[in-house]
Design a protein around this nucleic acid. Structure first.
Lengths: 155, 155
DNA sequence: TTCATTCGCAACAACATAAGTTACAAATCT
DNA sequence: AGATTTGTAACTTATGTTGTTGCGAATGAA
């Protein structure tokens, strides 16, 4: 099963937007993510609905941040992109009549729910500003990449 | 993304096999899982390779347990079915040149790895005998289902 | 006003993967 | 020999993410 990369992509975009003056068009963002402007609009729509970004039509329009990175957590963005299923494995049947299967589902659910709880709780504690800070640290460590990274919109 | 149900199915089958005398054919198992004999053989092949089950061809052949349920953990079976990807969400790119994306991947990986570690560690602590015991408890609580559940091969 | 720019959205195609199916060979037992 | 049963390859189906096309609506500039 190919995994869902929307969360990763949106985090990437948001941090770039924070480091960039003015609005970014879907076209620009798509080039950065190696994808299509329509995919960008589709995915960013969820973030717009929650107020994390704003969009403007027409000349000079595009996408801008709706609030500072310090006020967005991984959990916020995860939810804004549609709370995709966390796990790629799950039960064969949701309401099995078979008691064996019920016991199996119970054992699996318990483990999965615990792991999901941990994951989301951790997501809730990490802000995009934290990631941006890590980016700054990486840029300081690798000055040869810094030129590219600091030059605005890029890969 | 539809999830992978192989782990769930194999746990289900193994416990039924434990409660059943003699070999079970792929046909019988497939009927129980509402699937196809070939899917059963394909999935059980992994368990056979690890010795959790044995298969015999020809008359009176079929599948039997290779060791007691108390000596199989959820982790064992998870690995035997091919260690499917645990998570349905992941990075857009595995080796990004972009330092922002690297920072994003690092933040996500850290959270995912921690959750996966917890999940697999928990899997390692649960034996199939534990699940079978839970099944016994459920059967005691719901005697009306017990007749069906105890009658050998069923759904 | 007219025109270029840009988002919004519906509809459809491409692609990946789990699951289901068909067909046949090989092994085993009666 | 013949029936049963697994082993496996090849193909099809189903589902979900991603990619693409097309067109409408809004915005700003000339």
């Amino acid at each position: 099963m190919r995994h869902d990369s929307r969360l990763s992509r949106m985090l990437h975009v948001l941090i770039h937007m924070d480091r960039h003056e003015g609005a970014a068009t879907s076209e620009t963002i798509a080039a950065m993510l190696n994808t299509n402007p329509v995919v960008v609009r589709r995915t960013m729509a969820g973030l717009r609905d929650k107020g994390y970004v704003r969009s403007e039509k027409g000349h000079g329009g595009g996408w801008t941040l709706g609030r500072p990175l310090s006020e967005m957590t991984l959990l916020d963005i995860y939810e804004a992109v549609g709370q995709p299923a966390v796990f790629a494995v799950g039960p064969a049947c949701d309401q099995p009549a078979c008691l064996v299967e019920q016991a199996v589902n119970a054992a699996l659910s318990e483990a999965f729910e615990e792991a999901e709880k941990l994951l989301l709780s951790r997501f809730g504690k990490v802000t995009l500003a934290d990631i941006a800070r890590d980016f700054d640290a990486r840029m300081a460590r690798y000055p040869e990449s810094a030129a590219r990274a600091g030059a605005g919109w890029h890969t």
